[in-house]
Computed example of a mutant assay.
Amino acid sequence: MTERREIGENCEVILHFDLKLEDGSAADSTRVNNRPAKLVIGDGSLTPNFEACLLGLAKGDKKAFTLAAEEAFGRPDPNNVHYMDRSRFSSELSIEEGMILAFSQPDGSEVPGIIRSVAGDSVTVDFNHPLAGQTVIFDVEIINVLPAKTQQGG
C-alpha cells in the first residue's frame, strides 16, 4: 500500500481545475487543453485562502470551494483604471469595448488591459485582473503531490 502524501507547506502540487463564476459560467479550466497546473504551496503565487483550501488533500482527491472576491482576485482598484489618448494605439487597430490588449511595461514585461470604453479620442483601460470583484468557484482534482523541495546550501 502506498503512503498518502497530503498537500502541505512547500509541496509541489499538480492539479486540474475548473474555475466558474457564481452564475455557473466557465471562466477558466486546465481541462480544455488537458494541461494540468503546477504550483508550490507557500511560494506566494497563490492567495493564502486558496492554499488553505488545498491543504490536506492528496492524489486523487476532488474538492469544490468558493472564494469571495477578497480571497480570490481581489477587489477592483480604481487606481488601475487609466484614461489614454487614442493616438497611443496603432491607427490600424480597431479598438472595441471588452477587448483585452497587451501593454508593454518599462521593464519589457507585458500586462493585460481590458478596454472598458472608447469615447472620441479617449480610451479607458482597466488593468485590474479580469476576475477582480468576482466570487469564484474552484473545482479541483489533485493529480499528484510531490514532497517539499529541500533547500540546497551554497
Score class of each variant (00 low, 15 high):
residue 2 T to D: 13
residue 3 E to N: 12
residue 3 E to W: 04
residue 4 R to C: 10
residue 4 R to T: 13
residue 5 R to E: 04
residue 7 I to G: 02
residue 8 G to P: 08
residue 8 G to Y: 01
residue 9 E to V: 02
residue 11 C to I: 04
residue 12 E to W: 01
residue 12 E to V: 07
residue 13 V to R: 05
residue 15 L to M: 13
residue 20 K to T: 13
residue 20 K to Y: 04
residue 23 D to Q: 05
residue 23 D to M: 02
residue 25 S to E: 10
residue 33 N to C: 04
residue 34 N to T: 08
residue 37 A to K: 08
residue 37 A to S: 15
residue 40 V to E: 10
residue 40 V to C: 12
residue 41 I to E: 08
residue 43 D to Y: 02
residue 44 G to M: 08
residue 46 L to G: 01
residue 46 L to C: 11
residue 46 L to N: 14
residue 47 T to R: 10
residue 56 G to Q: 13
residue 56 G to T: 14
residue 58 A to Q: 10
residue 60 G to K: 06
residue 60 G to S: 06
residue 61 D to L: 09
residue 61 D to H: 07
residue 62 K to I: 14
residue 62 K to L: 15
residue 62 K to Y: 02
residue 63 K to Y: 05
residue 63 K to F: 05
residue 64 A to F: 08
residue 64 A to Q: 14
residue 66 T to G: 08
residue 68 A to M: 05
residue 69 A to C: 02
residue 70 E to C: 02
residue 71 E to F: 02
residue 73 F to A: 08
residue 73 F to G: 06
residue 73 F to T: 06
residue 74 G to L: 04
residue 75 R to Y: 04
residue 76 P to S: 09
residue 77 D to R: 03
residue 81 V to R: 11
residue 82 H to T: 04
residue 83 Y to T: 12
residue 85 D to S: 03
residue 87 S to K: 15
residue 90 S to M: 11
residue 90 S to Y: 03
residue 91 S to P: 12
residue 92 E to T: 15
residue 92 E to I: 11
residue 93 L to M: 15
residue 94 S to I: 07
residue 95 I to T: 15
residue 96 E to R: 09
residue 96 E to T: 13
residue 96 E to I: 03
residue 98 G to M: 06
residue 99 M to N: 11
residue 99 M to P: 04
residue 100 I to P: 03
residue 100 I to K: 13
residue 101 L to D: 15
residue 101 L to I: 15
residue 101 L to S: 14
residue 105 Q to H: 11
residue 105 Q to K: 12
residue 106 P to C: 04
residue 107 D to T: 10
residue 107 D to E: 07
residue 107 D to C: 07
residue 108 G to S: 07
residue 109 S to Y: 08
residue 109 S to H: 13
residue 111 V to N: 02
residue 113 G to D: 14
residue 113 G to F: 03
residue 114 I to C: 15
residue 114 I to V: 14
residue 114 I to E: 13
residue 116 R to E: 12
residue 116 R to C: 08
residue 117 S to T: 05
residue 118 V to S: 03
residue 120 G to T: 00
residue 120 G to F: 01
residue 121 D to T: 10
residue 123 V to F: 01
residue 124 T to S: 11
residue 124 T to G: 07
residue 125 V to G: 07
residue 125 V to L: 07
residue 125 V to I: 14
residue 128 N to D: 06
residue 129 H to C: 04
residue 130 P to T: 07
residue 131 L to G: 05
residue 132 A to T: 12
residue 133 G to D: 00
residue 134 Q to W: 03
residue 135 T to W: 01
residue 138 F to W: 10
residue 139 D to L: 00
residue 141 E to G: 10
residue 141 E to F: 05
residue 142 I to Q: 00
residue 143 I to E: 14
residue 143 I to H: 05
residue 143 I to F: 01
residue 145 V to C: 11
residue 146 L to K: 01
residue 148 A to C: 07
residue 149 K to T: 07
residue 149 K to E: 08
residue 150 T to W: 00
residue 150 T to S: 06
residue 150 T to V: 05
residue 151 Q to E: 12
residue 152 Q to N: 11
residue 152 Q to F: 01
residue 153 G to W: 01
